[in-house]
Write a protein that binds this DNA or RNA. Structure first.
Length: 153
DNA sequence: GCCAACGTTGGC
DNA sequence: GCCAACGTTGGC
């Protein structure tokens, strides 16, 4: 059992979109490190913070759960998709993803607030220059942040 | 295998 | 829109 943080642009898929859909494929990851986390390190049942990026106030919006084994990201083979990868062959797919399931929505935790806690000083998300869209979260970080999720907003 | 050029991410 | 930081590409 491991914990994760997964970034999504709310314009594409927000926590409310996930709540409505129930389950979504985590498509569009085109970074090998993030792919390897999904392909190799994640396990069904792992929990992840759902993070909103590329928006006015980035931050943690809720929690989701890894709910499938890895399988090829269909968008890589779609010439009309922004995530199309012409170098990926259907018999040897380059990009694998997992499905994630909505677990809950918490008090919105802005990035600026996360940065204010010394307990999170070493969090991967907050590391200088971090751009990874999927990062591991330690059990300590999870517990520390998770208790804010239950607060009223 | 090095490394410069380029593209992308993502906060601000 | 800017720009720092990082990843990828491709020539050599």
């Amino acid at each position: 059992m491991q914990y994760w943080l997964m970034k999504s642009e709310p314009d594409e898929v927000s926590i409310d979109d996930l709540a409505r859909a129930g389950t979504v494929p985590w498509s569009g990851v085109r970074n090998y490190q993030a792919r390897n986390f999904m392909r190799d390190a994640m396990q069904v049942g792992d929990l992840a913070f759902f993070y909103h990026s590329g928006c006015a106030e980035p931050g943690i919006a809720g929690i989701c759960e890894v709910c499938s084994e890895p399988y090829p990201d269909a968008t890589q083979f779609d010439p009309h998709s922004a995530y199309h990868d012409p170098k990926s062959a259907p018999d040897k797919p380059r990009w694998l993803l997992r499905d994630v399931r909505f677990v809950g929505k918490g008090r919105y935790l802005p990035l600026a607030e996360l940065r204010s806690y010394v307990e999170l000083a070493n969090m991967r998300l907050l590391a200088r220059g971090n751009r990874l869209s999927i990062t591991p979260v330690t059990a300590e970080e999870w517990a520390f942040i998770n208790r804010f999720m239950a607060e009223k907003s």
